[in-house]
């Protein structure tokens, strides 16, 4: 089974990671905003639940998702009346990546929002902007750098996801075999040449992500204040 094209693995990995990042962005940023700005009962519990996947073994998260999505699980065919048709497909890999990157994006977004002086938002209100206009014209632009960093972190977490993905989506060549599982498989069967190439690709992806993040959080970036 050696010689699986590196390009196919890379494209699948990027597809999974981009999808997971896009789907996570809005809920994670909204959750980060709520945790930073609102006081509500059960806030600590919500914050803990959001953080949980960070401290659990990824395989445990994957297995939990598996139980939820299984035929007789709360999100399975018996309960919903139809089949989400996720398991062992690339979509399952997306779900696993989302579960693992949501905590990271939420926590980083929360810090980004906490770095925005609420008095600047109050100022916007006195100038005539309503709550939504204040959010889109001031809060989000002011938190933009931190939010971008949050999304990049989530993206890299999605690229590197292994444990939850293997548990939920399997390791099917061409379907759910992402970079992380491809390196593992190649090494297992002794195809060191493929493992080497995949490793170099992973290194390059990681370096790019780090540079972009550092650029965003450095003073050289044009705008933002977090």
């Amino acid at each position: 089974m050696s010689g699986e094209p590196v390009l196919d693995v890379l494209l699948l990995t990027l597809r999974v990671a981009f999808s997971a990042t896009l789907l996570t962005a809005v809920p994670a940023i909204a959750l980060g905003y709520a945790l930073a700005r609102w006081r509500f009962p059960g806030k600590r519990l919500v914050a803990s639940l959001v953080t949980l996947p960070l401290v659990l073994p990824p395989t445990a998260v994957g297995f939990l998702l598996l139980r939820l999505l299984a035929v007789d699980g709360p999100l399975g065919r018996h309960t919903l009346g139809f089949d989400l048709d996720l398991l062992l497909t690339w979509k399952a890999a997306v779900v696993a990546a989302m579960a693992m990157s949501l905590p990271l994006v939420t926590r980083t977004a929360r810090v980004a929002f906490e770095g925005v002086d609420p008095r600047l938002e109050a100022m916007a209100r006195t100038l005539g902007y309503g709550p939504w206009q204040t959010l889109f014209r001031f809060t989000l632009p002011l938190a933009a750098r931190g939010l971008s960093a949050a999304l990049i972190l989530g993206f890299t977490r999605a690229i590197g996801e292994f444990g939850a993905t293997v548990t939920l989506a399997g390791n099917i060549p061409g379907q759910t075999r992402t970079l992380a599982s491809a390196i593992f498989s190649a090494q297992q069967v002794g195809d060191l040449a493929t493992a080497d190439r995949l490793m170099v690709v992973a290194l390059l992806l990681g370096l790019v992500a780090i540079w972009v993040t550092e650029w965003l959080t450095s003073a050289k970036a044009p705008r933002g204040t977090t």
Binding site: D117, R119, L120, M123, F138, L142, A144, R223, T225
Partner: peptide, 8 residues
């Protein structure tokens, strides 16, 4: 007092 100009 501090003006609170929008830094972005």
């Amino acid at each position: 007092q501090e003006g609170l100009l929008f830094p972005h």
